[in-house]
Amino acid sequence: MVPDHQVMSEDEVKTLLARYSITFEQLPKIYHDDAAVKQINGKVGDVIQIVRQSQTAGIAEAYRLVIRRPKK
C-alpha cells in the first residue's frame, strides 16, 4: 500500500537538482514526522525518492525535501 520511500544520496540529489535546474527550495516538501520518513530514518534536509504505482503511467517517481513540521 505505502509506496517505496528511499533517502537519496548527495550525488543523486545533485543530479536531480541539475536535471530540473531547480534549487532545494523548489522541491516539493514532506514533513520530518511523516510516518514513511520516520520509517527510513530521513532527516530534515534529506531528499526522499518516492516510487509509486500510477494509474496513468504505470510507475511514477517523485522527490520530496524533508522539512520540519511547523508548530501547530
Binding site: 530540473y20 531547480i22 523548489q26 496513468t56 503511467a57 511514477a60
Partner: peptide, 22 residues
C-alpha cells in the same frame, strides 16, 4: 517545456504532468 508542472516561483508540483505527461 520539460513536462513538469510548476508554480510561478518554479516550485515543482508534479514531475510529469498527470504522471504520464499525456
Amino acid at each position: 517545456y520539460d513536462g513538469t508542472v510548476r508554480t510561478t516561483m518554479g516550485r515543482i508540483i508534479q514531475y510529469q504532468y498527470g504522471e504520464d505527461g499525456t
